[in-house]
Amino acid sequence: VPQRAWTVEQLRSEQLPKKDIIKFLQEHGSDSFLAEHKLLGNIKNVAKTANKDHLVTAYNHLFETKRFK
């Protein structure tokens, strides 16, 4: 089981690129989880459509539901 890579403050910070969060989610989330949160596909394309709040919610949801690969 992966550990949380970032704190809530870090997740919301401008310093953390959306692409980093997407990469983490794609590496650790199950396909059904990723599909549900519309996070499947090319990281660049996902970054265009997903806002930061959406990614933070998905990140927290992944750990709450433990839907890891």
Score class of each variant (00 low, 15 high):
K18S: 15
N45A: 14
V46M: 07
A50V: 14
T7D: 15
V8Y: 08
V56D: 02
A50P: 04
E27D: 11
T65N: 10
K23S: 12
L25R: 00
W6I: 12
D31W: 15
N42L: 13
K23L: 10
A35V: 09
R4F: 12
P17N: 11
K19I: 13
S30H: 09
G29C: 06
D31K: 13
S32H: 09
H37Y: 13
A47V: 15
G41W: 03
T65Y: 14
P17T: 08
T57S: 10
A47L: 12
L40A: 12
V8D: 15
H37N: 08
H54Y: 06
P2K: 04
D20I: 12
K38Q: 12
K48G: 11
E14N: 14
K52I: 10
N60C: 14
K23D: 07
K38P: 02
A47Q: 14
V46H: 05
S30F: 02
D53T: 07
F68L: 03
A50F: 05
N51T: 12
I43F: 09
G41Y: 04
L11C: 02
K48I: 14
Q15M: 09
E9I: 03
N51R: 07
A5V: 14
V1S: 08
V46D: 04
I43S: 07
K44W: 14
L40R: 09
H28G: 02
L16M: 06
K44N: 15
V8H: 08
T57F: 14
L11K: 01
Y59E: 01
V1W: 14
Q15L: 12
F63M: 03
F68E: 04
P2W: 03
I21P: 00
A47K: 13
L25N: 00
F24H: 02
L25Y: 00
A47S: 14
K44F: 14
T49K: 07
L39M: 06
A50H: 07
N60Q: 12
Q3W: 04
L11N: 01
K69D: 05
R12T: 13
D31R: 14
E64L: 08
F33D: 00
L34M: 04
T57W: 09
F63L: 03
A5H: 15
P2A: 03
E9L: 03
V1H: 11
P17L: 09
K38W: 09
K52C: 09
T7N: 07
F63P: 00
T65Q: 12
R4I: 06
K44E: 15
N51E: 14
R4N: 12
Q15I: 06
N42W: 10
R4D: 15
I21Q: 01
H61I: 08
D53P: 05
K38M: 14
E9W: 02
V8W: 05
S32I: 09
L40K: 11
K18E: 14
T65L: 09
E36W: 12
W6R: 09
G29P: 00
Q26M: 07
F24R: 01
K38V: 05
V1A: 10
N60A: 08
L62G: 00
K19P: 08
R12Q: 14
T65V: 06
L16R: 03
K48A: 14
Q26W: 08
K66V: 05
L62Y: 02
G41T: 04
K66P: 05
E14K: 12
N45K: 14
L40W: 09
E27S: 09
T57H: 11
D53F: 05
L16S: 03
T65I: 04
Q15N: 13
A58I: 15
L16K: 02
E9N: 02
F33V: 01
R4K: 08
P2F: 03
N42M: 11
E9D: 07
A58S: 08
E27G: 08
N60P: 00
A47E: 15
F68K: 02
L11R: 01
S13P: 02
I22C: 02
K52W: 13
K66E: 11
V8T: 13
N60M: 14
Q26P: 00
K69Q: 07
I22R: 01
E9P: 03
I43Q: 07
I22W: 03
F24P: 00
H54K: 10
L55A: 03
F68D: 03
K18T: 13
S13C: 04
K23Y: 06
N60W: 05
A35R: 09
L16Q: 03
L40V: 11
H28A: 11
N51V: 08
R67V: 07
G29L: 01
L34D: 00
T57Q: 10
W6N: 10
V46L: 13
K69P: 04
L11Y: 01
T65R: 10
N45R: 13
L11A: 02
H37A: 06
H54A: 09
F33R: 00
A50R: 06
Q26D: 01
K44T: 14
P2G: 03
D20H: 07
E14H: 09
Y59N: 01
T49L: 13
L11M: 08
Q15F: 08
Q3P: 10
L55S: 01
L62P: 00
W6Q: 12
